[in-house]
Amino acid sequence: MQPILSSPDAGTVAAPRRRRLLLALAAAPFAGALSFLPCAARAAQQAVIEGRDRWLFPAWESYVDDDTSACLKVVDLIGVAAGKLAAHGIRCTIVVAPLKARAAAGELPDGASLSPAVAQRYAAMLAHGKQAGLDFVDAAAALANVDTSQDSTYIRADYHWSAHTAEAVADATAEHLSATGALRGETTEPPALGDWTESMDYGDLATLLPPARKREIGKDRFIVREAPGDGGLLADAAPVVQVVGNSMVQPYLGFPQRLAHTLARPVGLKWTFGDTGPWKTLLDYLESPAFAKQKPQALVWQFNEGQMAYGPDASGQWDAASIIAEAPWLDRLEKALAQ
């Protein structure tokens, strides 16, 4: 059996429909909830920062405020969860998608830059995690492997990283999993990756602007892979590696497919929109029948840097149904792992 993505979330929808899934993250403010925005940001009068060359940045992710200490506390909680996973034979690898303002710092507004504290925050989290024995992938370093002559690291007027960045981070994740000896068993023939294709559409941040300004910002080039015939997906395969995260790792941008291709192993996927948060998303997977039936050897848990200061009880960041105090969250985690 070929390595595959084993999740209904990773279906073989055509590229235009998959693009609509991405745009579903950004309904206009007057049309309903912005499901990729933290709840607190939905009430903000200005949700977008305009940078150089018509680049857009999410205003709810500060590139100057120092919240490093809160982020390190969250790293500690991740460490507790990773320890519980390890006790049940599951290696946890953490991927933090860098702040868009970090990845495209040269496109920030004139005179703007990352504050020294924010500039050092990503490295501080990785160092803190390493000191605690956690498996952190340096996704910020992986940005250097993106061929920017073909694509940008993040999509100009969109919240998300580009598909080329998603693949570069997937390769770094696969290298990390292989180097740590997290996976057992034989590899098989890698699943095929589709050809690169290009389309023009408005980025999700552009859709937050007034119509006239949206037209001035213009459409973006979305360079993604076409899904091959069957998409390389077979829903009945047991994942060796399970990806749990948000829209950065959704199939449209190609992270799980590239991970399966590079590892030559079955990869499962559970992703939800950003307002659900990483804590509830992990519980949803661990409490699912799929996990009870077949536990993976490794779990790749993906976060966004801009949300790293917020634990499971962060009121105003996650939707109401996702908020849970830390102690009950850990209790549910332990119970799910023991099933």
Score class of each variant (00 low, 15 high):
Val244Asp: 12
Arg215Lys: 15
Arg225Gly: 03
Ala238Lys: 14
Asp230Val: 14
Leu259Gly: 01
Val244Ile: 14
Gly232Tyr: 09
Gln242Leu: 12
Val224Leu: 14
Phe255Leu: 11
Leu209Asn: 07
Gln257Thr: 05
Gly218Asn: 04
Met248Ala: 10
Ala212Tyr: 06
Leu234Val: 10
Gly231Trp: 11
Pro211Cys: 03
Leu209Glu: 03
Val244His: 06
Glu216Tyr: 08
Ala212Cys: 02
Gln242His: 13
Pro256Arg: 04
Leu253Ala: 08
Glu226Asn: 14
Lys214Asp: 01
Gln242Asp: 11
Pro251Val: 15
Val224Trp: 09
Leu209Met: 08
Val249Arg: 09
Gly245Phe: 05
Ala238Glu: 14
Pro239Trp: 05
Phe255Ala: 05
Tyr252Ile: 07
Gln250Arg: 15
Val240Ile: 10
Ala237Glu: 15
Gly245Gln: 11
Gln250Asp: 13
Ser247Gly: 12
Tyr252Gln: 12
Pro210Ile: 03
Leu259Cys: 05
Gly245Arg: 09
Gly229Cys: 08
Leu233Pro: 00
Arg221Lys: 06
Pro239Gln: 11
Leu233Arg: 12
Ala238Cys: 02
Ile223Lys: 13
Gly218Val: 04
Gly231Glu: 07
Gly231Gln: 11
Glu226Tyr: 10
Glu226Pro: 00
Gly245Glu: 03
Asp236Asn: 10
Asp220Phe: 02
Arg215Asp: 13
Pro211Tyr: 12
Pro239Met: 10
Gly245Ser: 06
Asn246Ile: 02
Phe222Ala: 09
Gly229Met: 06
Glu226Ser: 15
Glu226Phe: 01
Arg221Gly: 00
Leu208Val: 00
Tyr252Thr: 11
Phe222Ile: 09
Phe255Asp: 03
Val243Met: 12
Pro211Phe: 10
Gly232Lys: 10
Pro210Asp: 12
Gly232Met: 07
Gln242Phe: 08
Gly254Arg: 05
Asp220Glu: 14
Val224Lys: 02
Leu234Pro: 00
Arg221Pro: 00
Asn246Tyr: 08
Val224Cys: 12
Phe255His: 08
Ala238Gly: 03
Gly231Val: 02
Phe255Tyr: 13
Gly232Val: 05
Ser247Trp: 06
Met248Arg: 08
Phe222Glu: 07
Pro228Tyr: 05
Arg215Glu: 14
Val240Arg: 09
Ala238Gln: 15
Arg213Met: 03
Gly254Phe: 02
Met248Pro: 01
Pro256Ile: 07
Val243His: 06
Arg225Glu: 03
Ala235Asp: 15
Gly232Asp: 11
Asp220His: 04
Val243Ser: 10
Arg215Thr: 10
Asn246Thr: 13
Gly254Glu: 05
Phe222Cys: 03
Asp236Val: 01
Val249Glu: 07
Ala235Phe: 11
Asn246Gln: 15
Asp236Ala: 12
Ser247Ala: 11
Gly231Lys: 08
Ala237Gly: 13
Glu216Gln: 15
Pro228Ala: 14
Phe222Met: 10
Lys219Asp: 00
Ala238His: 12
Gly231Tyr: 05
Gly229Asp: 09
Gln257Pro: 00
Arg215Asn: 04
Val240Ser: 13
Asp230Leu: 15
Gly254Val: 11
Gly231His: 08
Arg213Phe: 00
Ala260Gln: 05
Phe255Ser: 03
Arg258Trp: 06
Pro211Ile: 03
Gly229Pro: 13
Pro239Arg: 06
Arg225Gln: 08
Gly245Ala: 11
Ser247Arg: 05
Pro228His: 06
Ile217Cys: 01
Arg213Asn: 00
Val249Pro: 04
Leu234Cys: 13
Val241Arg: 02
Leu208Asn: 01
Gln242Tyr: 08
Pro251Lys: 13
